[in-house]
Structures are given as structure tokens and as C-alpha cells.
Amino acid sequence: MTRSHVTSHVLDSTIGRPAEGVPLALDSLVDGEWMPVGTATTDADGRASELGPVALPAGIYRVTFDTAAYFSTTGTPSFYPEVSIVFTLAEESEHYHIPLLLSPFAYSTYRGS
């Protein structure tokens, strides 16, 4: 398995477990428009290791998590149907990990390692 330049890990804080089956999309901002880069779905450990290519140029990127799709599988309504995280990929030699801590009515994120 090849690891993407950008990866993610989603944890469902309401149950204290990884969030399996969350669809993600990675986009790049090019000339003011979002262009698709890659997609993935979190595995049984809540990880998305194959979200896009192994190398990306510096720029502005966005990861969008389809939280409505995930919560529909748990039978829990979700206030936020999606979560979009926009970030700057400044160092092409570094790996970028975007974790998401998720509940039906709140979320948080940080720069992971």
C-alpha cells in the first residue's frame, strides 16, 4: 500500500471508536476553483491512507468529509452534513495528516503527524 501525501484519521467521539466508512474528497484550489485530486473512504480503523497521490505541489487544499453518509449508517442524525477543512500544503517534502474528531453536533481537527 502506498501512502498519500495527505492522509486522515476519523474518530467518532460519541462512541469512542474509529469512524469506518466515511467518504472523503481531496481538492486543490487552482485559479480560484476547486479541482478534484482524490477520494477515499475510511477503513475499519477510521483511516484514509490512499486519499490522493504520493506527491503534491505546494498550494491550498481542502478535505471534505461526508459526515451525513457516515451518520446515516449509525442511525444518528447529524447537524453537519459535511465537514470541509481547508489547509495550506507549504512544504512539499512533508507528509500532511488531517485528523477529524467527530460527533453528531460537533467536530474538531488539528495538524496530525
Rank of each mutant, 00 (worst) to 15 (best):
39 T>H: 10
89 L>K: 11
56 L>P: 01
27 D>R: 13
22 V>K: 09
89 L>I: 09
19 A>K: 04
111 R>M: 14
16 G>I: 15
68 A>T: 06
33 E>A: 14
99 P>E: 05
51 L>K: 00
41 T>K: 12
39 T>I: 07
68 A>D: 14
56 L>G: 09
67 T>Q: 06
28 S>Q: 13
59 G>Y: 08
96 Y>K: 03
93 S>D: 15
66 D>A: 08
71 F>Y: 15
93 S>A: 12
21 G>M: 01
94 E>K: 11
2 T>E: 10
61 Y>N: 02
12 D>L: 05
46 G>F: 01
4 S>V: 06
51 L>R: 00
54 V>M: 02
106 A>G: 04
16 G>H: 06
65 F>G: 06
13 S>M: 13
37 V>Y: 00
15 I>S: 15
23 P>M: 12
3 R>F: 11
97 H>P: 00
10 V>I: 05
20 E>Q: 15
21 G>N: 12
84 S>P: 14
24 L>R: 06
94 E>M: 11
54 V>T: 10
41 T>C: 05
106 A>E: 13
27 D>C: 05
35 M>L: 14
78 S>N: 12
105 F>A: 13
25 A>M: 03
94 E>G: 03
46 G>R: 01
22 V>Y: 01
104 P>H: 07
13 S>H: 06
90 A>N: 11
20 E>F: 11
1 M>S: 15
8 S>Y: 02
19 A>I: 06
88 T>V: 11
83 V>R: 09
34 W>T: 03
91 E>V: 06
105 F>M: 00
42 T>H: 09
48 A>Q: 08
89 L>S: 12
60 I>H: 11
78 S>C: 15
94 E>V: 01
60 I>E: 14
110 Y>I: 07
33 E>S: 13
4 S>K: 01
75 G>H: 10
100 L>Q: 03
11 L>Q: 12
33 E>I: 06
26 L>M: 07
53 P>L: 02
80 Y>G: 08
85 I>P: 00
76 T>Y: 04
36 P>F: 10
7 T>S: 12
76 T>N: 13
81 P>N: 14
38 G>A: 04
79 F>Y: 10
78 S>P: 00
85 I>D: 04
17 R>G: 07
8 S>W: 01
97 H>K: 04
67 T>S: 15
46 G>A: 08
45 D>R: 15
6 V>H: 03
42 T>A: 00
25 A>V: 13
53 P>A: 12
67 T>V: 14
79 F>K: 14
41 T>E: 09
10 V>D: 01
91 E>G: 00
106 A>Y: 09
12 D>W: 09
82 E>G: 06
10 V>Y: 00
82 E>D: 15
41 T>Q: 14
98 I>P: 09
6 V>K: 00
46 G>Y: 05
30 V>P: 08
71 F>R: 10
83 V>W: 03
19 A>Q: 07
31 D>A: 11
37 V>S: 08
18 P>W: 08
89 L>Y: 09
37 V>Q: 14
44 A>T: 13
52 G>N: 02
28 S>A: 13
1 M>Q: 14
18 P>Y: 11
11 L>K: 12
37 V>H: 04
57 P>E: 13
80 Y>T: 02
92 E>L: 07
22 V>W: 01
51 L>Y: 01
